[in-house]
Design a protein around this nucleic acid. Structure first.
Lengths: 229, 229
DNA sequence: TGGATGTGTCATAAAACATTGACAAAAACG
DNA sequence: CGTTTTTGTCAATGTTTTATGACACATCCA
């Protein structure tokens, strides 16, 4: 199994469902981890740091909707895409699902094809911290597994948002990202934050990158956004 | 109404639907334009250049899926986000919708809230019509993704307006652009600026292009405008 | 719980860029 | 040629965009 395959957290209370899903996901090359109820799910999120979450609506102990709400209210987990899975087709549920911040919504019965398509779409959108991958740019080394960043061998101290911001930049150095795109990838979908907030965090990232000296590697592209190098 | 509000193209064959949608969209501050069938839709796209498209699945003449396929197969329109709207809940359709390149999918009946949430998310994602294209002309290389311009390998420094001006020229080298056309493309529609401003910026672009030496590649066409080469 | 750390917003400062009018230079045209 | 029209450049001024520091509030972790 590829070390860098995306890790999917499957949350469902029915063991048969979980087995079916993990089987299919793994034969598509994903890595998986399971949880049987809401509390297990939250635990798994903080311990495993999945790249994406398949979340059943009906769960013992903590409902799927509540799990989602909690995930989306924390900075550390906000950016992880959540796909809600539900047997209920009522439109009201879809709305509630999306309003708690779910990134997508799938109604049972769904085909594996549909699920995989949505999975791919959501992963494509929001995968800044390529799990396990080590990115490098002009002496800056970002390790997605240990969450450590060094510059010219010296360890840098940076907060979670700065880390995600930097890893977005490093995924494609010298590509210009608009503030909106950065909000989408670093902060997450449907989050209402002023675009100027990006400026502030860029400033913080610059300070963090320069804490042991060195040129500022972040380029301001007036009227367009920011880029690395 | 804000001139720069996103323009939403609403494609639906039922007038009542269209009215409902435009009413709601406009009270949210969007500008709207409508089409009643697939061919009208394609026409509206090329004439109005909407920022995003709400596309009903079932349409007379040209089905929504076909419209989407055509839009996504042309460079000029590929970047416009398309949200498919359908009454059909069959999952197979959802998959087909996403596979033709639709950016999102909404099933009727949907709530306005859901629709607006998806609209916002998709607009934000695709916003700066990233022309990730690299244009080249006589040693001048313009990269739309990194916003960098080099001449004979040497990086040039140019401001936002100079960048847009140059990229307009490079789209079709040796074509002559009138001052009015340049104002339209570089400055934007309905903006009131003296045509003399164009001269000044041409001057700046010339200086910028010559900052490391080299011939002036911009040709003045007296009485007509300017061209590259 | 409580201290440390991180985050979003605002006000303000600073920088970058755009516009315009004046005038000089160049081209067109009789 | 001299006149008229068009274009190039400059400097002054105005506008927009970005940077930064301070602060309140939320979150994390022991």
């Amino acid at each position: 199994m590829n070390e860098h395959a995306p890790l999917v957290l499957v949350v469902d209370d029915e063991p048969a469902q979980r087995a079916m899903l993990t089987y299919n996901l793994e034969s598509e090359g994903y890595r998986t981890v399971c949880a049987g109820d809401g509390e297990e799910a939250l635990l798994a999120v903080s311990e495993q740091g999945p790249d994406i979450i398949l979340l059943d609506w009906m769960l013992p102990r903590l409902s799927g909707i509540e799990v989602c709400r909690q995930l989306k209210s924390r900075n550390a987990t906000r950016a992880i895409p959540v796909i809600m899975v539900s047997a209920r087709t009522e439109e009201e549920d879809r709305v509630r699902g999306l309003e708690t911040g779910a990134d997508d919504y799938v109604v049972k019965p769904y085909s594996m094809n549909e699920l995989l398509a949505r999975l791919r779409a959501n992963l494509r959108r929001a995968r800044p911290a390529q799990v396990g991958q080590v990115l490098e740019f002009e002496g800056i080394v970002l390790d997605g597994e240990t969450h450590k960043v060094t510059r010219d061998g010296k360890l840098l101290k940076l907060g979670p948002t700065e880390f995600r911001l930097l890893s977005t930049f490093m995924e494609k150095p010298s590509r210009v990202w608009s503030r909106e795109q950065l909000l989408d990838r670093v902060w997450g979908r449907d989050i209402y934050v002023d675009t100027r907030t990006v400026d502030v965090h860029i400033g913080r990232l610059r300070k963090a990158l320069g804490q042991h000296g060195g040129e500022d590697p972040i380029r301001t592209v007036r009227g367009a956004g920011y880029a690395l190098g």
